[in-house]
Design a protein around this nucleic acid. Structure first.
Lengths: 156, 156
DNA sequence: CCTGAAACTAGACAGAT
DNA sequence: ATCTGTCTAGTTTCAGG
């Protein structure tokens, strides 16, 4: 994988291929090939090149957590004691499966995390029995997402 | 698609299949089939069932935005005037490609969004010339993510 | 809920432009 | 450097247990 601070150049064909596959990673390559007007093999070669360049970092099946009863999403801003290092806090947060994202942020907090819980009671337990129990966490601020209204990737 | 408030039941085989494909949506089904010990056709039938149940909401190619020069990620809390309705604000935000997520939140702000920009100057322009220009946006608070240290889906 | 067969597609290679 | 044709292995559907 190429160093990711060298910018990758992509042409119109690459963009078309990526737009198809960003929507549906299992879309048949030959179907894309027919739409674009090149052979399937050419698409495979371009995809290999894009992967080698570091632009393509993989593919994922997307799960709908609501179908499993996970309906409460929240952002939590975390204040850390001066003595607590960020890497140690992240290591502790990684062990909590409800934590889906963790950002090292400027501004009010040391850390901003996104958590996904079954309901408010579950969220309360994650806060009180998991997050607040981490050594060095002094205070938290919670923002419940009543509805996620936009969720997308960068536009190509 | 089934109503998503009825909980989906999945067994151990479904979980194994999902864990493989959540990591890599293009992983060969037959490879998974051999690892689990059932036929490829059986996996396809299970996947169709999971999709019909609403648990599987699709698959995506994942792009590394840094390779395209997008290195500045930030969360922005937005205060809306009483007169501004949430849906109209979301409609305006949808037109801004740098906005990747939008959450209707409890707490301080009316809306919390995630934006991805090339650099700090680009972020400043998005803030001043796009977000703040939206009618009904009274004030914003910006938190730059210096580093996203965790990024994952729900654990199955 | 599973398997096996049939038709189609993915992914890799050699070779042409 | 990027394309095409071809070949093996994988995907996906369907009839049937």
């Amino acid at each position: 994988m190429k160093s990711s601070n060298s910018l990758v150049k992509i042409d119109g064909i690459d963009k078309k291929i990526l737009r198809y596959l960003m929507e549906d990673a299992r879309r048949p390559i030959l179907e894309i090939a027919r739409n674009i007007g090149i052979s399937g093999a050419a698409i495979h070669q371009r995809l290999r090149k894009l992967e080698a360049s570091g632009l393509l970092s993989g593919s994922k099946f997307v799960i709908n957590p609501k179908a499993l009863g996970y309906t409460t999403m929240a952002y939590i801003g975390i204040f850390l004691d001066k003595a607590m290092s960020n890497p140690r806090a992240v290591a502790a947060l990684e062990k909590i499966p409800e934590v889906l994202e963790c950002h090292y942020t400027t501004g009010n907090w040391s850390i901003l995390i996104k958590v996904l819980c079954q309901d408010n009671e579950h969220l309360m337990q994650v806060l009180n029995k998991k997050i607040q129990q981490i050594e060095g966490v002094s205070r938290t601020e919670t923002f419940i997402s009543l509805d996620q209204q936009i969720d997308r990737q960068i536009r190509i």
